[in-house]
Design a protein around this nucleic acid. Structure first.
Length: 274
DNA sequence: GGTGCCCTGTGG
DNA sequence: CCACAGGGCACC
């Protein structure tokens, strides 16, 4: 469910709430979401450690702990982190609860249970989480149009498919792929080897610009974030094309189309996108 | 490359 | 009731 802008929002809100706080208790309600072979070890290594800070990499979140361990989380489709007083009733689908020293609880809630926690011990090579396979962040200096052209220029796959490939550039998901391609004026089903250098320059500019636009639109207070159960802030009202098929294009008024590319739906304007 | 699968909930 | 949902992986 969450893509880079949503994960960034969670990082900013939850990060500021838990930074410097000690975890004084861990309760695993459903161990399916813990991708660690030994539950006891996971508990031992996370419990009684202080959170130094929260970091985002692509769609992953990484808690840096004082004992040098890292607690990595991927929210996948429906994962959600909320900090609230321990007295609050537990949401349905609450799978893990971290108790903080101040009596607040950091709760992991995930309807579909696709999300995962990993534990990386100090200096342990990360061969588990998938983070090591990720491509550059869209805001990295390394993410240039020549990088994108070199990586994609000769591929026959559709540009939409490649935007979702986290090893090429990280953070884009199904919704923002449609939004980015609309902003760049490129049809989602265009083969990569059919795009011009100009198209790649345009894409390279529109990827960080579009994601940044939605990070800003996501901005919300911690109180409103909690009130909306970590979902309310998500910016559906600002989407230009995704979810708007059969409606008029916001630029030209043509009717927006839906196509399935690589098993997932994309929405585009047949007039504005070539 | 395409498909199925992991899950639950919702909308047509 | 079936199709589909913002992710990612294993498997032909």
């Amino acid at each position: 469910m969450p893509e880079l802008p949503e994960v960034e929002t969670v990082k900013r809100i939850i990060g500021s709430q838990v930074q410097g706080k000690k975890i004084t208790g861990v309760e695993i309600i459903n161990n399916k979401v813990i991708a660690h072979p030994v539950e006891e070890e996971f508990l031992k290594e996370v419990n009684n450690s202080r959170i130094i800070g929260l970091q985002r990499r692509g769609k992953y979140l990484c808690f840096h702990l004082e004992n040098k361990n890292k607690l990595v989380l991927h929210l996948r489709m429906t994962g959600c982190l909320l900090l609230m007083p321990y007295t609050y009733p537990r949401e349905k689908h609450t799978h893990v609860i971290f108790t903080m020293e101040d009596g607040q609880e950091l709760r992991y809630i995930d309807t579909r249970r696709f999300g995962r926690f990993w534990l990386l011990k100090e200096d342990e090579d990360d061969i588990f989480t998938g983070i090591s396979k990720l491509g550059p962040e869209p805001f990295d200096e390394a993410f240039t149009s020549s990088y994108l052209y070199e990586k994609l220029g000769k591929r026959k796959k559709s540009i939409k498919d490649c935007l979702l490939d986290q090893t090429l550039v990280t953070g884009i998901g199904n919704i923002y792929a449609s939004e980015i391609l609309f902003n760049a004026g490129i049809r989602p089903d265009r083969p990569c080897n059919n795009l011009s250098i100009k198209d790649y320059e345009n894409l390279t500019e529109m990827i960080p610009e579009t994601l940044n636009y939605f990070i800003e639109k996501n901005a919300i207070s911690p109180e409103d974030y909690l009130a909306g159960k970590g979902m309310g802030y998500r910016n559906t009202p600002f989407l230009k094309v995704y979810g708007h098929h059969n409606e008029p294009c916001p630029k030209c008024g043509s009717i927006l189309c839906k196509v399935v590319v690589g098993g997932r739906s994309s929405v585009y304007c047949p007039q504005c996108q070539k």
